[in-house]
Simulated scan of single mutants.
Amino acid sequence: MISDVKLGISLYKFPNFGPEIEPLVEYVKLAEDMGFEHVRLLDHVVGIVAERHGGIAQTPYTDKSIIRECFTLMAYLSAVTDKIRFMTAVLGLPQRQTVLVAKQAAEVDILSKGRLTMGVAVGYNPLEFAAMGEDFKTRGKRFEEQIDVMRRLWIDRDVSYKGEWHEFQDVSLSPRPIQRPIPLYFGMGRKIAPIPPDVVLRRVGRLADGWLPIFGPDAEGQKAVDTVFAAAREAGRDPSELTMCMSIDVPDPKDPSFIDDIKRRRDFGASQITLNLLGTSASEQIENLRQVNETLNKHG
């Protein structure tokens, strides 16, 4: 493999694993045996009956998508793996109860012996927020407060907090996570709009440990990076300490051209890269994983 970048795989680019757990476990264990650094997991608690809401333009994940509950799944996978890291990419944080997320994440971090990275984002589908009983319109500001609350609960033994959306006194998480705090990477953008607004980019620079951009290593992407770095410096932070994790679609795992895509993103500043392997079934995705590993070992 390419030695100067950490490569991972998505558990599903689109959720083509069926309801059976065995192929999913085989896929993750195989990735670990091959030396991949992380596996990314989706988070959608509910699927949308898209045809009743204007089609799938709003979301590629529908009622026909099989997406497992990410904390439960990571806890399960932590017992059958030893090294590979788990990364939620991304968890719709403002849809969920903050303190409960902090508790669930802490438990997964403990069970996995410190192998959790939390990819989080504000979310984009108001139908999902309604199903979860949360306010879609306030999600951005609540997200920032949620980040603060979770970090305090992970680090401090005794926490009191009074904010706009959270207020509690003299509480603690017990046990606290191994990583204090658990790394928080911010997700952003969509395929239809890969460059997010400046307010989103500046939030990364001010608050994130890392980020998960979906734009390419091009001039527009560089402008976004510059905005993030400027916000980090204004907040008194070192931009070089922000981990960038990018992703690449691999339509043909036998074609080594995806390795050039890895190198372009590495040279752009990404220290972690996730490979999205296509396939219409679990068996196809497992075979594609074998093929991409063979290509990496041969040409990387």
Rank of each mutant, 00 (worst) to 15 (best):
R68N: 11
L30G: 01
K162I: 00
S174M: 08
V25G: 01
D261E: 13
P126H: 02
R40D: 13
R96D: 03
L278I: 02
M188I: 00
G163M: 04
G140D: 12
Y61F: 14
K141D: 13
E144S: 11
R190M: 14
Q104A: 14
K162L: 03
V25T: 10
F268L: 02
I155Q: 09
P251L: 01
M188F: 14
V199M: 03
P94Y: 05
V225D: 03
I262W: 06
R96F: 13
V228W: 00
L93E: 04
E287A: 05
K64Y: 05
F215A: 10
D198H: 07
T88I: 13
Y185S: 05
F215T: 02
L111C: 15
F14T: 12
P19W: 05
M132H: 10
V46N: 03
Y27S: 08
D267G: 07
P183E: 09
P253E: 00
Y76K: 12
Q272T: 01
E26A: 09
R290M: 00
R157F: 04
K141H: 05
R157H: 13
S247N: 14
V225K: 09
K141C: 01
V122E: 11
D209F: 08
R68Y: 13
L24P: 06
E20V: 06
D226P: 02
F258A: 07
S78K: 06
K298E: 15
G140N: 12
N297I: 02
I178N: 03
D218P: 11
D198G: 03
Q179S: 07
V46Q: 02
T88D: 09
P194F: 06
S281Y: 07
L296I: 05
W165A: 11
V292N: 10
F186S: 06
A219R: 12
S247D: 12
S271G: 12
M34I: 09
C245G: 03
L201W: 06
P194K: 07
E26G: 06
Y185D: 09
